[in-house]
Amino acid sequence: MTAPATPSTPASAQDAGVVASVERPCRGFPRAARVRAKAEFARVFEAGTRKAEPDLALHWLEDAAPARLGLAVSRKVDPRAVGRNRIKRALRETFRQLRPQLRPGAYVIVARRGAAQADAATLRATLQRLLRRAGALPVPAAVGTMPAATSSHPPIDPAARVRGPETADE
């Protein structure tokens, strides 16, 4: 007689849900990619350029260092920590994805009251608009079916164009 198959259960409640470490590329947000010091925040606010929309304000100070992000989400935006953290998480992820395309410098994003009601997609779109307006993010190429018009020929003089069939009678 064979023993009934026992379901594989964790050895303890502490082991429940623990999955063995799998090699995956690091997608985190390293310390080098953050604006952290109070002095650096102050420098960005004083000397940086500012662009704003109802939900967010962007302060950007271009320098030689790679793109770094600082976030300011106060209790006036959302009194609940879970709401403030949701806003920060959405902005941080958008910045992480856009970081390779961004010009170097320190970016500080200040959330405004409207950000509390905005979903992650709206915050992402607003941040991208602000970055483009500031000149930190290149404008995406126009989507179309025809390639961009590039010509190695000299421009045609409009006066030299033929306006129809020429006849000998004229």
Rank of each mutant, 00 (worst) to 15 (best):
A5N: 06
T6Q: 13
P7D: 09
P10S: 12
A11W: 01
S12A: 08
S12T: 14
A13H: 04
Q14Y: 06
G17P: 10
V18G: 00
V19T: 12
V22R: 15
V22E: 14
R24S: 14
P25C: 00
R27Y: 07
F29P: 01
A33C: 12
E40I: 02
E40P: 01
A42S: 11
R43M: 05
V44E: 12
V44C: 10
V44K: 13
E46M: 05
E46I: 02
G48F: 09
T49L: 12
K51N: 02
K51T: 13
K51G: 02
A52E: 15
A52S: 15
E53H: 03
E53C: 04
E53R: 14
P54F: 04
P54K: 12
P54H: 11
P54C: 08
P54D: 11
P54V: 03
D55N: 10
A57W: 01
L58Y: 09
H59A: 13
L61C: 02
L61P: 07
L61G: 03
D63Y: 02
D63V: 03
A64R: 15
A65E: 14
R68Q: 14
R68Y: 07
G70H: 11
L71R: 13
A72N: 09
S74D: 03
S74A: 11
K76F: 05
K76T: 06
G83D: 10
G83F: 09
R84Q: 09
N85I: 05
I87M: 08
R89H: 09
R92V: 06
R92F: 05
R96Y: 10
L98T: 10
Q101D: 15
R103D: 09
P104E: 05
P104A: 02
Y107D: 10
Y107N: 12
Y107H: 14
V110D: 04
R112W: 09
R113W: 03
G114H: 13
A116G: 06
A116T: 03
Q117D: 12
A118P: 14
A120M: 06
A120W: 04
L123F: 04
R124W: 05
A125M: 02
L127W: 01
Q128R: 08
Q128F: 00
Q128W: 00
R129V: 08
L130S: 03
L131M: 11
R132D: 05
R132Q: 15
R133Q: 14
G135K: 11
G135A: 14
A136R: 13
L137V: 04
V139N: 08
P140L: 06
P140F: 05
A142S: 15
A142I: 13
V143M: 13
G144T: 10
M146N: 09
P147Y: 04
P147R: 07
P147H: 07
P147Q: 03
T150I: 14
S151Y: 04
S152E: 15
H153W: 09
P154Y: 08
P154M: 10
P155W: 01
I156N: 00
D157L: 02
P158K: 01
P158W: 02
A160M: 00
R161I: 12
R161G: 01
V162S: 08
G164A: 13
G164P: 04
G164Y: 07
T167V: 06
E170R: 12
E170I: 02
